[in-house]
């Protein structure tokens, strides 16, 4: 059992090792197929940071992921709460529609959406067409939050009502504090969704290199700047790094979130 685990672990870990080793090789050696660097060129990392635009990509990724997460959480919590705790006509339909939009490939509706953002609102060439819609609820986040809110016992809410709290105060004063783990998980998911998003920036930011994100910039990194594999691998690690750092700090919320997706099985 243990040998299997070690063998499988190699499959998971070795790619990181190879990527790292290549990232410190010289231009020539990166093309040679060697596994171990002759000399350790730490300057490759400096070269990546000095690539025109690289720091802008960082800033844009942070902007997109940061604002996107904030907007999503603020707009999705009340909707999820209503769907979890209110009884009203059409509730099941609303739920079905939320799940449907969650399952829908974004490519289905992207063209008319793009036309509106680009031709009517002239906002293409920026990340706003990706950020603004997040202020209007995100189906996946709504669904996950609802699943989480279902687990909050009714009695807590009713006791709040007895205390004379309005619904909004119940939400902010009681539900949100209790739902912190769920909200944290949703926020993390949304943050990584934005951080990793490639399709969105490709549609809306491609025409303006000043609005590129890390994920989008990385793909064009190799071709647009005629660089070699060593620098590309260094850049790749630099794109992975923040996600992995955040993971180690927020490990619990992460695992919580992932289990949440399946918890209602």
């Amino acid at each position: 059992m243990h040998t299997t685990a070690v063998a499988v672990a190699l499959f998971f870990v070795l790619p990181f090792v190879f990527v790292f080793l290549t990232s410190v090789m010289s231009d020539d050696q990166a093309m040679s197929g060697d596994l171990w660097p002759h000399e350790w060129n730490w300057s490759n990392y400096a070269a990546v940071f000095n690539t025109p635009g690289f720091l802008d990509w960082w800033r844009n990724s942070l902007l997109y992921a940061g604002l996107g997460t904030l907007f999503t959480v603020c707009s999705s919590v009340p909707v999820a709460y209503a769907l979890a705790k209110f009884r009203f006509r059409g509730r099941r339909t609303a739920l079905v529609l939320v799940i449907s939009t969650m399952m829908l490939p974004p490519q289905v509706i992207v063209i008319p959406m793009y036309l509106v953002w680009a031709q009517q609102l002239h906002l293409s060439g920026s990340l706003w067409p990706l950020i603004i819609p997040m202020a209007f609820g995100d189906a996946y986040s709504i669904f996950l939050l609802r699943q989480f809110l279902l687990t909050i016992p009714k009695e807590y809410l009713e006791s709040a009502k007895v205390d004379g709290c309005g619904e909004l105060r119940t939400l902010l004063g009681i539900v949100v504090p209790m739902a912190k783990p769920g909200i944290a998980a949703v926020a993390l998911f949304q943050f990584f969704y934005c951080w990793n998003d490639y399709f969105g920036p490709q549609i809306y930011a491609a025409q303006n290199p000043g609005a590129w994100t890390l994920s989008y910039g990385l793909e064009s990194f190799k071709s647009a700047h005629s660089v070699n594999w060593n620098l590309t691998m260094a850049a790749t690690l630099l794109v992975m790094a923040p996600v992995i750092v955040v993971f180690f700090f927020a490990q619990k919320a992460f695992v919580e979130g992932v289990t949440l997706t399946g918890v209602k099985g």
């Binding site: 680009a118 031709q119 906002l123 293409s124 060439g125 491609a206 303006n208």
Partner: peptide, 10 residues
């Protein structure tokens, strides 16, 4: 191509 279709100030 995209920018000319989109128009706008930029």
């Amino acid at each position: 191509n995209q920018a000319l279709r989109a128009g706008g100030g930029d």
